[in-house]
Structures are given as structure tokens and as C-alpha cells.
Design a protein around this nucleic acid. Structure first.
Lengths: 337, 337
DNA sequence: CATGCCGATTACAACGATGTAAATAGGCGG
DNA sequence: CCGCCTATTTACATCGTTGTAATCGGCATG
């Protein structure tokens, strides 16, 4: 038998109808023990596996969900992926992971279910999507957004309170006597993304402490990778007097910055403090270890999967809801802990 | 229209038959310009998207492949995933990523195509599979194995020459005068996996240099994560006189080890050398930066995708082939570079 | 013994797309 | 104007699975 056996082959082998085989596969209760055994044996003998395409075509469901993230080599997303898989496992869902590269077209594809057609829903961590992209969204595909928020009401959303998190991190630095805190990866204008929200929290903390805000301490970066953090430090140091702290908007930036500082002969926390966001594994083992804002990744994953599963099950047109997940500041060596 | 529109809806809207719509979608040449335009407009108007399940059912192909790796939060796999996506893009293939957790059952599922049914083939990086698992393999699903080899002839394989790579890394350490080189993550018995092959290369280098092999310098680890590297260093230091070099079988182990050494007051490369495998991003930015064996990840990804695409296209029953991909030793600060 | 009921099994159609083969429509030469 | 040829379009069947509803057979009841 060259071709993959179908339910029909199994039926023939077992001497029953295809539908009975289907009933056995789906644990339908009214099947005699004898028949059930015969079918099981036939399945075993032929090495039959249910064909998901056929099943989906008929049922309209696959039991699979897609997790679409910008880049897997950003540790935060990789770690998140693990938690999402764990959360999905508990609900009998299988997760397929998709990289968008932060490219708008690919994110759109995920949002519209083009790539994700055979999954029942999508958990998407958008980077490049614009508000208008949500207007034309195909609302038949359940979507949960992570991190970046979106125009109200267009899709469920899960994330931490970015403003508060940045405020707390900044307060920590201020409490340590730091006054010239650079925001690596910060943004003052443009899309109201994570970067702007965090920068906002930073500004709030400064204001509350009556520390003047210096716009030139907001250092933009190309991307959120190690080398961008290193480059940013180069730029900052070149520009004039060194700041006394770096609030880096993710851990990769912070770790890249630590390296560049090291090369420049500056040490954290002696010469200046460094704080990151995400609490990735690398920050626990770096030298110095990295102070960071740790989002409750398991909580994010749980909430996202749970919201998505609800949408899928109820095909509900309920209004989109937002979930704020806990975070906490983990103080380590890079800011004196 | 609540439900997702099907090709039939488009046909009706455009006033043609479903098959004509199909012809337009698939760029069949004998379609009049007028009809083509009408169908295009209908597709646009209804927001129609081709249903992959239906297509696969009919065609037997999806244009998607699965990449199944143990853990995405092992940076090597995350980086590899990126290269695989790039390679696949070039061939018009879409990649779905799947985490096995290194759990045998999940790897088996990937191998048997259970999870991956709607993909045309699988690139699998196995950890826990046993030789006998390949015996019962469903050979209808094209599979390419990465890293770990497998019983000859059962599936295509792509990887670096682990023995040579470890030998070269060891030679580098020996050339620097190191004599008591610990192998973190090494193995002397058990499955002939990457760990054993690399340990073997290490032993070969020692023998060639007439340096006695000390079995207690082979330090087993639970997994290949940061904390395992740190733990291994703890064990080694407890046990007696410190080695003068650590050959860590991946970069995570090496970076975890660097941290533990730092805590123990030992510095690389002054007190001892540290070398890793994989050339992950973190090793370029660590303090000290990490000497490592860099596999040609793009080369691995290209070869894997290419082999897989061939199998899929030709449905060939040709004998399995093995591809050895280049590697090179990148010397950085942790071993004096 | 007829009737009704219930559990077990099955026939049939349908999900959406597309390959095959047949039908239809123009166009052109005769 | 007819018939043939080609370009375009269509009808139909099919991929594998499962929901619906019908059928079958056995058993208990009246």
C-alpha cells in the first residue's frame, strides 16, 4: 500500500463502514466492544492516522492555534513560546509557531489567517501593524494580541502595564540617586507602542521626583537586539557626559549595553546602573547580572490561551477585552542589588 | 455573510463557475481577461481566501514544512529557525515551528507526521529518539534530521563533523598550554549522540598531544542550559583542583559556567579558558566574550530545506544521504583571543 | 405474536478546491 | 452559411472525514 491509508481502507480491512471507523476514532459511545476492537486492530495493522485536512474540512476546527511572534531569537519570545505551549497543552490545543520578522505584511497575513488557516485562532505579538490594519480585519478568525495594544475593541489584548513598569524601574534608579537616566530604545513620538508607553512611564517618574527631563537622553535604536544596545551606548558616550543610568527597554539592549560599557571601561553598578525589561535567562547569568522588569510570562501565556480558547469555543462576538498581567522589578547586580 | 466565503460564493458573485474561479486563482492561462477581472473583483469584494484544507485534500500538498526542535529558548535552535525560514522562503515554502521539548513522544509524533500532517515534510532535531524508532517510521513523510545522526539510511541528515569540531577546539586549548581540560556536558557511554561524538573528538586531540585522559574531567549535565553549566562548575570545583580549561558542549553551558567561575573568583582567560559550541549571539556580547565552535547555521538550514524539498518534489525513495556542513572555531576573549 | 424501543450500524451528503473530460463559443476557411 | 478548430468555460467526480438521519436487529412488553 503505497498511499497513506484512509478511513475507507481501515473500514474495509475491519469489515465495517467508514462511519463506524470514524465513530471509534472519536470515541462515540454506541459502538460494541467487539467492533471497537476490530477497528482498533485494523488501524494498527494499516498504520492509519487521521487526516487533519479532511477532518478540518468537515468540522471546521483543527485544535491548533498559531503563535505569531516577531523573532524567535529574541529570547523573550522564545521563552513566551514555551509558556504558551504549556498553557495550550492543558487545553488539548497544539501550538504552531510562526515568525513574522516584525514585517507588516507577515503580521497582516497572521491577522487575516492566511498563513494560519488551518489553525483555529492566532496569538499575535505585533510590531509593525497600524491601527487601520485592524479596521479591515477578518473578524471570523479569533485573535489575541500580546504586548502592543491596538485600537480599542478590535481584538482581545494581553500585556503588562508598561507605563507603571517603566515608572517603577525609573523610581528604583532615582532612589539609588541616579539623575541622568538614559532610555535606550525609547520613543517620544510615533505609534503608541510599548516603547512610547515605557518612555511615558519614565517621564512620569522623573516628573514625580522633580528631576528635569532631558530629551537627548532618549536614545532611539534600530531594533531591540544586543548590537543595538551596544551601538546606543557608543552613541551616548560620544555625545557628551555619560549618563549615570541606562533604562534599556529590553534585556537584549541592556546586555549589549553592558558589553559596550565594559569595553569603554565603565562598570555597572559602580559607574552607572543598568536596567532592562523581560527577565530573560541571559540576564540572570551575565556579569554583572541584570536588574530587569519581569513580566509574568506564564500569566501572559495563560491569559492569552484562555481568551483565545473562549473566542474559539463560543465564536463569541463579545467586545474585545484587555488583560493586564502582573510584573515585578527584579533587582540584581547591575543596579546594585 | 457570516461564514467565510468559499469558492462557490465567489463564483456566484462573479457569475461564473467555481472551476473558473479556481482557474483564476491558479493562474491557468486560458481565461479571458474579462472573466479574470470579474473574478478578481469578486474575490476582492467578498474578501475571499483560499481554504488550505480544501486545497490540501484535493492536491495532497500544502507548501508548508515543519521545523521541530527541542526547545526554542535554546538560542541555537531559535537562530537556526530563522535561517530555516529564510531558506524556505526562497523556495516558496512556509515554515511552521514545533517544539518537542526533547520528549520522545513528541519527537515521535513529529517523525510520524501526526502533529505535522498538514505539512509536506519535517526537519527534525531529535534528542531522545532511539534507533528503533526509525524502524517503524512512516516513510511516506519526508524527514530531514539535524544534529544527531540516526541509523544509517533511515532519513536524510545534516550536521557538522562533531568529532573534528571538538578535536579542533581541544587542540586550540592544548596549543595555549592547557592540560587539564574539563568537558562540560560530555558523555562516555550511552547513545552515540552529539555529546559522545564531541567527547570522542576531545579524546582524540588529547591522545594526539600525548596528554593523559582523565575520566573525572568529563562532567555530565542534566540539560544544556545556563544553570546546568553553572552547576557543573560548582561540581568540578568542589571535586578538587580546578581544571585549566572548560570545553563546554554548548554556549549556554559555557556562559553559565562563566558566571559560576566569576562567582568563584576565577577569571577567563586568566585563570582558565572557556570554550563553547554553537556561536549564539549571547556569546559575542558576554564578558568575557566567548570562544566557540561556530557551525554554519545558514548552511545547515539551506541543506536541510533543500534536501527536504527534493524529497517532497520527487517523492523519491532514494537512499538517505548525509550532509556535513562547515564549522569554524571563533576565538574570543574567553580563551585569550 | 405483534409492537415499541433502544443500541449499533450504515447510507448519504457535504465541507472546499481542483483534475478530467466534456461542452460551449467564437473564428475562419471553404 | 456550414463545419471544423481552438480558446474558454463548465459539469462532475473526488480527496478524507463526519453530521444527519435512516436502517437494522434484538429484547422486553403488552
Amino acid at each position: 500500500m503505497a498511499a497513506r491509508p484512509s478511513i475507507k481502507d481501515v473500514a474495509e480491512y475491519a469489515g465495517v463502514s467508514p462511519k463506524t471507523v470514524s465513530n471509534v476514532i472519536n470515541d462515540f459511545e454506541h459502538v460494541s466492544e467487539k467492533t471497537r476492537a476490530a477497528v482498533r486492530e485494523a488501524i494498527e495493522a494499516l498504520g492509519y492516522r487521521v487526516n487533519i485536512a479532511g477532518r478540518q474540512l468537515r468540522r471546521g476546527r483543527t485544535g491548533m492555534i498559531t503563535l505569531a511572534v516577531p523573532e524567535l531569537d529574541v529570547a523573550y519570545f522564545a521563552e513566551l513560546a514555551k509558556h504558551v505551549m504549556a498553557a495550550a497543552d492543558g487545553r488539548g490545543l497544539t501550538v504552531l509557531i510562526h515568525q513574522t520578522g516584525g514585517v507588516r505584511d507577515r503580521e497582516l497575513a497572521a491577522l487575516h489567517g492566511f498563513d494560519a488557516q488551518f489553525t483555529d485562532g492566532v496569538i499575535l505579538s505585533p510590531l509593525a501593524l497600524l491601527p487601520r490594519d485592524f479596521a479591515t480585519r477578518d473578524t471570523r478568525l479569533p485573535v489575541v494580541l500580546l504586548g502592543e495594544s491596538c485600537p480599542a475593541g478590535s481584538a482581545d489584548h494581553v500585556g503588562i502595564d508598561n507605563v507603571a513598569a517603566a515608572r517603577e524601574a525609573t523610581e528604583h534608579l532615582l532612589a539609588r540617586g541616579r539623575r541622568r537616566i538614559a532610555v535606550v530604545g525609547g520613543a517620544l513620538r510615533g505609534r503608541l507602542g510599548t516603547d512610547r508607553l515605557r518612555t511615558q512611564g519614565y517621564q512620569e517618574a522623573l516628573r514625580a521626583a522633580s528631576v528635569p527631563f532631558e530629551p537627548e537622553l532618549v536614545v532611539p535604536v534600530g531594533a531591540f537586539h544586543w548590537q543595538d544596545g551596544a551601538r546606543a551606548v557608543g552613541a551616548v558616550l560620544e555625545r557628551g557626559p555619560a549618563p549615570d543610568a541606562l533604562l534599556c527597554l529590553n534585556d537584549h539592549l541592556a546586555l549589549g549595553a553592558l558589553r559596550a560599557l565594559h569595553e569603554a571601561g565603565l562598570r555597572a553598578p559602580d559607574d552607572l546602573d543598568v536596567v532592562g525589561f523581560d527577565d530573560i535567562e541571559a540576564g540572570r547569568f551575565s556579569v554583572p547580572s541584570l536588574t530587569t522588569v519581569a513580566p509574568d510570562k506564564a500569566g501572559i501565556a495563560d491569559a492569552a490561551v484562555s481568551l483565545l480558547a473562549d473566542r474559539i469555543d463560543r465564536a463569541s462576538a463579545e467586545d474585545a477585552s484587555g488583560h493586564i498581567v502582573a510584573h515585578r522589578l527584579v533587582v540584581r547586580e547591575s543596579s546594585g542589588g
